[in-house]
Design a protein around this nucleic acid. Structure first.
Lengths: 178, 178
DNA sequence: TGTGACATGTAAGCAGTTACATGATTTG
DNA sequence: CAAATCATGTAACTGCTTACATGTCACA
């Protein structure tokens, strides 16, 4: 549902092709969502089926034809309805926590290794997010236009999550190492 | 995969029925995983198919018969293999972040409401986790037996995540309210 | 000559949710 | 008498991943 609505919001801002929407996802993927082109095409087809978007075939020279999708009135209505509904908080189901939980069977030394490897990945991700912040959001949040504030907040959540995770991991490794 | 392995670890510790495994999940669900009985039964059937667990039908008086599942040698090997493989960090796909990102189309006032509602849920969850901590883990982590340390660490991650989320939400609401 | 960008899809499968279904015993 | 607990499952569906598949053009 959220993916559908996210696509709807993207084509509302600017009519787009599936390809362009996928690129958009890749660009913000790092800090709040991820979707493959297969998913995007499937959802676009479903949205068109339900009349929430319509598309025009556009022929291009020297490039494949493309389908430019735009939101419909029904699409706007569906989005507004979804937006008003409260969301359940998402569950976690983190494979690493399974490894922590089953650490005695797996071997505590192996667990420590797993934690280290994960820490390296989270450090990379944090560095990436911090680079984005430095490059694209150097000004005070209060001075940003609304749309930029909103994207910035999703970035902030990514930063907060990574920092919290790293703190937890350091504390955990210290405890396990004794 | 993780669910399969989690089930394997549970029956390794103590041969169990699907029902008991589901109860076990419910007990730890709050802080690191969740699984319905349907999922558990399906995975148990698959594990038995692959020879990673075997089960015995046990007749009971005044209760339905039960299938007690135990891990096999192949099961232990499969678990060890899985445990050694590094895990990718899980992606998030949080519907609330979609609402933040699409806040201009949805309406910032509506977004603030959504954030408030989510905050209430996260506060509840944090309170629940803190209660568990007070009740079951009052001692110093270093003094706990290994198995308890491991469970405690998954609880700590839940606590850290909720606290980080709440901090982010407060900051976000403040920014959006101007 | 090969790789990367542009552009769109199918097919199979895994993970998880919701709803449906049964039936005995224990507790309030 | 009703609800909760014990105990097991099927069926349909949603969401997402992985692998397969096609074809052009630009650039190095």
């Amino acid at each position: 549902m959220s993916l559908r609505m996210l696509i709807l919001a993207i084509v509302e801002a600017k009519p787009s092709t599936g390809y362009a929407i996928t690129k958009e996802f890749d660009a913000v993927a790092g800090f709040f969502w991820r979707a493959s082109h297969q998913q995007v095409y499937r959802e676009l087809a479903a949205l068109a089926d339900e009349g929430l978007v319509r598309f025009k075939d556009v022929a291009q020279e020297g490039r494949p034809d493309k389908k430019v999708h735009a939101i419909t009135v029904a699409g706007r209505r569906a989005f507004a309805e979804w937006y008003a509904q409260p969301q359940d908080i998402p569950r976690l189901n983190d494979p690493l926590m399974v490894k922590v939980f089953t650490g005695e069977l797996g071997g505590v030394d192996n667990l420590i290794e797993q934690l280290s490897a994960a820490r390296a990945q989270h450090l990379d991700k944090l560095a990436m997010l911090e680079a984005i912040q430095r490059e694209h959001y150097p000004e005070a949040p209060a001075d940003m236009p609304r749309w930029k504030q909103l994207v910035y907040l999703t970035l902030c959540w990514g930063l907060a999550r990574e920092r919290a995770w790293l703190q937890w991991a350091e504390q955990s490794e210290a405890l396990l190492r004794g």
